[in-house]
C-alpha cells in the first residue's frame, strides 16, 4: 500500500489549516503580489540586479564524481549555479499569525527542496541556495502564509511574537522594520537585518480579524480556537508520549 501522508491529527480549523499548508497537493491562496526586486531588497543579501555570488563553479562545469545519489536527486537551480547559501527568517505573532515556527518548518520540508530550516520559539529561519531562497521567499510572502501585520521578516532582534500587538495592530518590532502607512498599507522601510532601504517595499494591507482567525495555525483560547476543545489532537499527543515512554524500557516480545 502506498504511503499516504496524513500531515497531522485534529478536528479543529487550526488542525485543518495546518494540514492545508503542509500538503503540497493543495495550492495556497495567493493574497498579494510583490516583485522579485522587492524580495531581494527585504532579504538584503545582494543589490537588486547584481549577479549571484557563488560558492563554487556551476555543477555543469565541474567534474562530478560517480555517485548514484547524484543521479537520483536532481540539484536545485541554485545548487546547479553554485550559489552561496543565504537565509530568510520569519517571526509569527501568537495572536493568530497565519503560520507558526514548526508549522513553517513542516510546510517548507513538504514543499521546498534543498533547505535547512531552524525552528525556535520566536522565529524560524530557513537557509538554502540564494536564487532558490528568493523564489521560496516570494511564495512565503505572497500566499496565505503571510499577514503584513502578524508576520514579519527579521534577521535579528526578533522579539515580538508573544507581545501584545501595537495600537495599529502590528506586531512589536524594536527596529520597526515595517510601518503602517496612512493608506493602510504595510511597508518595509528596513531590510530584514534592519538596514534602511533606498525605497519602501509595500506588502499590502493587514488581513482583518475574521481572516486571521479563519487561517490561523495556532491554538489560542482568547483570540482563536481552544486547544482543549480539539480532543483528537490531545489524544494523539498523549498516545505519542505514552508509546515513546514504553519504548524507553526497550520492550521485547516474550
Amino acid at each position: 500500500m502506498a504511503y499516504k501522508p496524513q500531515y497531522g491529527p485534529g478536528t479543529s480549523t487550526v488542525a485543518e489549516n495546518r494540514r492545508r499548508q503542509m500538503n503540497p497537493d493543495i495550492e495556497l491562496e495567493k493574497v498579494r503580489e510583490v516583485t522579485d526586486e522587492d524580495v531581494v531588497l527585504v532579504l538584503g543579501h545582494r543589490a537588486p540586479g547584481s549577479a549571484y555570488p557563488t560558492a563554487h563553479p556551476p555543477l555543469a562545469e565541474q567534474q562530478e564524481p560517480e555517485c548514484p545519489i547524484r543521479k537520483i536527486v536532481e540539484a536545485t537551480e541554485g545548487a546547479k549555479a553554485g550559489d552561496r547559501v543565504r537565509y530568510v527568517q520569519f517571526v509569527d505573532s501568537m495572536y493568530n499569525g497565519p503560520s507558526q515556527p514548526y508549522q513553517r518548518t513542516y510546510t517548507e520540508c513538504y514543499r521546498f527542496r534543498g533547505i535547512d530550516p531552524g525552528t525556535l520559539s520566536g522565529r524560524q529561519i530557513v537557509e538554502c541556495r540564494e536564487r532558490d531562497l528568493e523564489a521560496y521567499s516570494k511564495w512565503l510572502i505572497e500566499t496565505e502564509m503571510f499577514d503584513p501585520a502578524l508576520t514579519s521578516i527579521r534577521g535579528a532582534t526578533v522579539h515580538g511574537h508573544s507581545l501584545r500587538l501595537a495600537e495599529d495592530g502590528l506586531m512589536f518590532d524594536m527596529l520597526q522594520r515595517c510601518i503602517l502607512g496612512e493608506d493602510g498599507v504595510v511597508r518595509y522601510v528596513k531590510d530584514q537585518i534592519g538596514e534602511p532601504l533606498d525605497r519602501e517595499v509595500l506588502v499590502g494591507k493587514p488581513q482583518d480579524d475574521a481572516w486571521s482567525k479563519g487561517k490561523s495555525t495556532i491554538f489560542h483560547s482568547l483570540v482563536g480556537e481552544s486547544y482543549r476543545d480539539d480532543e483528537e489532537y490531545i489524544e494523539y499527543i498523549v498516545r505519542v508520549h505514552t508509546l515513546r515512554t514504553k519504548y524507553g524500557f526497550m520492550p521485547t516480545e516474550e
Binding site: 501568537m94 525552528t119 525556535l120 495556532i218 489532537y233 499527543i237 515513546r244 515512554t245 524507553g248
Partner: peptide, 28 residues
C-alpha cells in the same frame, strides 16, 4: 510535546533534542 504541538513552537534549538526525546528516557 503538548506545548510544542499547541503553539507550534517550543524553546530554542536545544529543546529539539532534549525535550522531544525525553519521553523515552524519563522512565528508563
Amino acid at each position: 510535546l503538548m506545548h510544542k504541538e499547541g503553539w507550534s513552537r517550543l524553546g530554542f534549538f536545544g529543546y529539539d533534542l532534549q525535550d522531544q526525546c525525553g519521553s523515552a528516557n524519563s522512565l528508563s
